[in-house]
Nucleic acid binder design. Structure first.
Lengths: 188, 188
DNA sequence: GTCTATAGCTTGATAGAC
DNA sequence: GTCTATCAAGCTATAGAC
C-alpha cells in the first residue's frame, strides 16, 4: 500500500476550509480532490458515505477544534481574563473575522438527501456554543436566565459580525465584538 | 404568442425565495423551473444571461422590496414609532426570523464565474441597509460616528439572529432584536 | 412567450488494478 | 491507500418550432 498522502489533521483542515467557504452544494468533489490532493476514489476509501460523510466529519472535527478554542472558559482564574482569552482565540480561529462560520455556511441549502442529519448536528454545535458562554456568564454572577440571554446575545453578535464582514469585506464589527465580549457576558 | 404564465412580481417572489433558501449553488435551474412553472428555455428568454442574470435580478428586486420595508425611516413623525414600524415590517418580511437573509445566503460560495458581480451588489445592499439605520440614529440625536456604530450594531444583531434562528430553529433572539431595535438605534 | 429536444459538461459515486 | 477508468444522473445553456 502507498503511504498516506495527507495526514488526518491536514486533511480535515483542508476539508473544513472548503465547506466553510463554499457551503455544502458549493463544495464539489472536484474541489475537494484538488484541495486535498486525493483522487475521488481515495476520498471514498476514507469516507465511504461520500460527500455527506465528509461534511459530517468536518462538523465533528470542528466541534473538537472549538472545544480547544473555548478551553479557557473551563479553566480557573479571573472570569474576564478568561473571556478575553477566548475572544483572542476566536479572532485567531476566524482570522479576525475574515473567515465564515461553518454553522452559517452549512445551514444554507436544501433539506433533501441527508442534509437533515447535518442540520441536526449543526443545531447541536450552536447550542453547545451558547451553553458554553452561558456557563461563564453564570459564573460571573448572572442568574441562569440572565446568563442564557447574555450568551445568546454574544453568539448572535458573533455570527452577525461574520456575516457583515463576509458581505462587506470590513472586519470592524468583528473587532468590536471581540472587545465587547467580556462586557456582554458579565453584564459589565 | 402565449400569455405570460406568471406575473413579473410572482416570478420574482418565487425566485427570491429559492435563492434565499438554497444559496446560489443550491438553487438549480430544475428547482427554478419547478418553482416558477416556466421551462428552462422560457427562463432563458426572460433572463438571457442565465442563472447569474436571475440572481442579479433577485438582488435588484430585493433592493426595491427592502426600500418599502424601510420606508417608515424616511417618513415624518416620532422617531421611535417609525423604528418600531420598521421592526414590524422586517418581522413580516422575514417571517418572524424563520426566513434567511438573501445577503447571507448569496455570499456563501465560490468566487468563480460572475459571482464577484453578485458579491459587489450584495455589499452595496448591506451598506445601504446600514446607512438607512445610521440616518435615523443620526436623527435621534447621535453624532455621525455614533450613528454609524449603532446602525452597524443593529444590522450585526439582525443578521446574527437570523443565523441563530436558521441553525437552531428558535426565533427568540430575533423577537428580542425586534423589541430592542428602537433602543439600539436611539441609544435609549 | 412558451415549448420540446438536445448538446456538452460536471456532478457524486463505483469497479477493480496495484 | 492510492490510483485510472467509467458510470448514470444532473447541471447550465442553446436551437428552433409554434
Amino acid at each position: 500500500m502507498p503511504p498516506e498522502k495527507i495526514s488526518e489533521r491536514e486533511l480535515m483542515l483542508a476539508l473544513t476550509a472548503l465547506f466553510r467557504d463554499q457551503g455544502f452544494e458549493g463544495a464539489t468533489l472536484s474541489m475537494i480532490s484538488k484541495a486535498t490532493g486525493l483522487k475521488r476514489a481515495s476520498l471514498y476509501h476514507r469516507f465511504p458515505g461520500g460527500k455527506q460523510d465528509i461534511a459530517l466529519a468536518v462538523v465533528d472535527f470542528t466541534e473538537l477544534e472549538f472545544k480547544e478554542v473555548l478551553a479557557p472558559l473551563w479553566e480557573s482564574g479571573d472570569v474576564k481574563t478568561r473571556i478575553r482569552r477566548v475572544a483572542r482565540n476566536l479572532g485567531d480561529y476566524y482570522d479576525d473575522g475574515m473567515k465564515s462560520c461553518l454553522v452559517d455556511s452549512l445551514s444554507v441549502g436544501k433539506e433533501a438527501d441527508g442534509r437533515d442529519i447535518i442540520a441536526e448536528r449543526i443545531a447541536e454545535i450552536m447550542e453547545a456554543f451558547i451553553s458554553s458562554f452561558a456557563a461563564i456568564a453564570r459564573e460571573s454572577g448572572a442568574t441562569a436566565k440572565q446568563a442564557r440571554l447574555r450568551a445568546e446575545d454574544a453568539v448572535v453578535r458573533f455570527e452577525g459580525s461574520l456575516v457583515v464582514a463576509r458581505s462587506t469585506g470590513k472586519i470592524d464589527s468583528f473587532k468590536r465584538w471581540q472587545k465587547d465580549l467580556p462586557r456582554i457576558l458579565t453584564g459589565e
